[in-house]
């Protein structure tokens, strides 16, 4: 697994048929981080999951990068709330018993 830690951004873009501009716009929005090594661009493999999700939303629902940035923040917020809900439910259970 270690050898796959950095994914060449070109490979990623051509595989997914997304523009490099889309990737950089996500970087500008602070959603992903791009590594630059000797003028080459790389994506960290641990960010691939999130990135591929956003790429799917971009290509499949035709949402532009501004929209994707907003969605990414909302999804994150939703995740936090979901986790909080689970904790609160657990606490409530304690009082209902």
């Amino acid at each position: 697994m270690e050898e796959n830690e950095l994914i060449p951004a070109d490979d990623f873009c051509s595989y997914h048929q997304v523009s490099w501009a889309f990737i950089t716009s996500l970087e500008d929005a602070g959603i992903i981080e791009i590594k630059r090594v000797e003028q080459q661009h790389f994506i960290q493999s641990e960010q691939l999951k999130e990135l591929e999700k956003l790429v799917r939303l971009h290509t499949e629902l035709e949402i532009n990068s501004e929209g994707i940035a907003a969605i990414a923040h909302l999804l994150q917020r939703m995740n936090e709330l979901h986790r909080e809900l689970l904790t609160v439910r657990q606490k409530l259970q304690f009082y209902e018993h």
């Binding site: 796959n4 994914i7 490979d11 595989y15 493999s45 999951k49 904790t87 657990q90 259970q93 304690f94």
Partner: peptide, 27 residues
């Protein structure tokens, strides 16, 4: 497995608790 040299996916294991005690747990 990854495609075209991509990295493998991950395995997520979710734990389901079965309370076999007379204790209640909160955190």
């Amino acid at each position: 497995p990854g495609i075209n040299g991509g990295p493998n996916g991950d395995l997520y294991i979710k734990f389901v608790m079965d309370n076999d005690t007379n204790l209640n747990r909160t955190g």
